[in-house]
């Protein structure tokens, strides 16, 4: 089979998987206890990393912005504005998605891949269960819930990181920084959270699909995990532009 034909087959399979997932959700066959477990798992695995990355990203943004404005205008202008807008609209959702892909999505692809090669997926069928309802749907819902929440953590951490640098290094008063942060409105927050939800959908879809396509023992699990992480990261970064354009054209954010 040629590479292109393989790609088309893969796209078809992934579309079928998505269709089944949506169908199970609409039929209401949701395993809520697994959803909850997954949300806790994603949160536990990723929250510290997301906060740490967000905090330092906010710090570096404040530093770069402040120093640039100081070199041009002799004053650190708009630091609060640049940090808060950059974090909430762009860096919060994207960075969180990238961190969660590396941490939780790779673990998920490896877990599903291992289930595939150790026949646990086959076992599900013989126990009267579709893998879609036991594996995909709970993870799908968990990611769509958890990623926006983690994004909010990242946004807040970034704004606080920026605040720390602004006060300690750039001598910007708290009230000035905070007044600029408060210019953000609900539509900006919604813009970031919609993107985050969309990234969650990409991550879980790519990780589940690659996990399910695993073959060839431990080596196969390693390959499908790597592929899931790479494909999810690339898709997040590429599709980010198109989602952002769409949201702006709709007047959101």
């Amino acid at each position: 089979m040629t590479g292109f034909k393989k790609f088309l087959y893969g796209l078809g399979d992934a579309a079928v998987l998505f269709g089944k997932t949506i169908s199970v959700i609409f039929r209401g066959k949701i395993e809520y206890d697994i959803v909850l477990k997954q949300i806790i798992k994603i949160g536990n695995e990723s929250v510290a990393l997301v906060v740490l990355c967000g905090f330092f990203t906010g710090m570096v943004l404040a530093l770069q912005t402040g120093e640039t404005f100081v070199s041009i205008f002799n004053e650190p202008l708009y630091v609060g504005l640049v940090v808060s807008y950059s974090m909430v609209l762009e860096l919060g959702p994207v960075l969180t998605a990238i961190v969660v892909t590396g941490r939780a999505a790779s673990a998920m692809a490896a877990e599903i891949g291992t289930m595939k090669v150790t026949e646990q997926i086959d076992a599900l069928y013989t126990l009267g269960t579709e893998p879609v309802s036991f594996i995909f749907v709970p993870r799908f819902i968990a990611f769509v819930v958890a990623l926006p929440v983690l994004t909010i953590f990242s946004d807040v951490a970034g704004i606080l990181g920026g605040l720390l640098v602004s006060i300690a290094k750039l001598q910007i008063p708290f009230s000035k920084y905070w007044d600029e942060v408060r210019i953000l409105d609900v539509s900006d927050m919604v813009h970031g959270l919609i993107k985050s939800g969309f990234f969650a959908f990409i991550i879980v879809w790519v990780a589940c699909y690659n996990g399910m396509k695993t073959s060839g023992g431990a080596e196969g699990v390693g390959k499908s995990t790597t592929r899931a992480v790479v494909v999810a990261m690339v898709l997040i970064l590429v599709l980010d532009y198109f989602i952002t354009s769409f949201l702006i054209s709709m007047g959101i954010g």
């Binding site: 291992t114 289930m115 150790t118 026949e119 646990q120 086959d122 076992a123 069928y125 013989t126 126990l127 009267g128 579709e130």
Partner: peptide, 18 residues
């Protein structure tokens, strides 16, 4: 899936859910 519920299966690796 309905027919499959008539089958019990012991897999080579036992295939227990980890």
């Amino acid at each position: 899936l309905e027919i499959q519920s008539n089958f019990g299966m012991l897999f080579q690796s036992a295939a227990l859910f980890d």
